[in-house]
Simulated assay, not measured.
Amino acid sequence: MLIELVRGAKFPGSAWLADVRTSFGHTAVRWCGDRAAECGECHVEWTIDEDIVWGQNAKPAVGIPGLRTGGHCVVLRGRLSLTEDGAAVMDLDGTNILLDLADPLPEDVGDTWVELFIEREKVSLYPYEL
């Protein structure tokens, strides 16, 4: 996914965080790239290092992609898909994020819009070059 890296910072007791913007929102998340990276556009892969628990950190949502800060959490809104082998994938504006599930999701949530509420240090961005 193409994002705009606005700036990075390290706060006491936290990971290196990057302030990032997309066409559908902005937030601060864990940056796993070069800490001296120049601000500007870059391609990144998103990962979520937290188990998804329906009704706790995953809830139904209305259908447009979204990204925002919610306290100490990052709120990601996208379309959820369930695979045949029981895995879950969130489509975040054309970018797929594989999700780890604590328990199987209800069958009726496949192909629906959801919001995930994830601690900002458990949402990571890995930059890459095309």
Rank of each mutant, 00 (worst) to 15 (best):
M1Y: 09
L2S: 15
V6D: 02
R7F: 10
A9H: 08
A15V: 12
A15I: 01
W16K: 03
W16Y: 09
W16F: 05
L17F: 08
L17C: 04
D19E: 13
V20C: 00
T22P: 03
S23W: 08
S23L: 14
F24C: 06
V29N: 01
R30C: 06
W31M: 01
G33F: 07
D34Q: 06
A36L: 14
E38G: 12
C39K: 14
C42H: 08
C42K: 08
C42F: 00
V44W: 13
E45T: 12
E45M: 14
W46I: 14
T47N: 09
D51C: 05
N57C: 05
G63I: 01
P65F: 06
L67M: 07
H72E: 13
C73D: 15
V75Y: 04
G78Y: 02
G78E: 00
D91P: 10
L92Q: 07
G94Q: 09
N96I: 05
N96Y: 11
L99R: 07
D100W: 09
D103G: 01
P104L: 09
P104W: 10
L105V: 09
P106I: 01
D111H: 15
T112P: 01
F117A: 05
R120L: 14
E121Y: 04
K122G: 00
S124V: 00
L130T: 14
